[in-house]
Design a protein around this nucleic acid. Sequence first.
DNA 1: TAAACAATTTGATAGTTGTCGAACTATAAA
DNA 2: TTTATAGTTCGACAACTATCAAATTGTTTA
Lengths: 96, 96
Amino acid sequence: MNTKKVIKAMKALSNKNRFEIFMAIFNSNKQTSFEKEECFIYDTIEKLNIGTPTISHHLKELSNADLIITERRGKNIVARINEDTIKELGELLNLD
Amino acid sequence: MNTKKVIKAMKALSNKNRFEIFMAIFNSNKQTSFEKEECFIYDTIEKLNIGTPTISHHLKELSNADLIITERRGKNIVARINEDTIKELGELLNLD
DNA sequence: TAAACAATTTGATAGTTGTCGAACTATAAA
DNA sequence: TTTATAGTTCGACAACTATCAAATTGTTTA
């Protein structure tokens, strides 16, 4: 994983609202239901006090940083974590 | 590790120059010499094309984010990685 | 096809951040 | 105690970012 990619990921996670969005997706990925790995974004994220344009913007940033993968399903957008990138980030932080 | 702390760490690592500084310290920590865990900052970092005020500023950010620990040794500042924080960040990224 | 719903794009703005030069502080050496 | 070296603080400014309202695009349902 190159420097540029790491920095992009860090930047994507360095904003509070964007981090919350990421965690919402992360958590919805953990559920054991048949809906696993799916997150109907604008549903889950209503709590955050920001408008849809901003959410859209943040999702694009997370997506550009390869932290999440989004996909249109009908009228909705579905998101899931890009586990590869997370794993790479985790490895980077292994000191040893 | 609370959300606020994670975000602060991410933000600290999301700037190119700051990331390079962090990596310089990280790498100097890995050396097996008797100087292990020490990094005479303004020495190591001369390559980066930024002035000392900026470096000082970046070091403070890294320090405030608990990513490094700095210490004055005579005229110099010595820095080392705060392994606890790195470990915590690493754990956070373990999906499982 | 029209209406309704879901999300994106655009344009603008307020706030944040990285950077520097100049002035300052701290420590060591002469 | 003067001079030199190392680092910090301050004030300013350009560049970047988060946010929103308004307009637009894509998708489903009536």
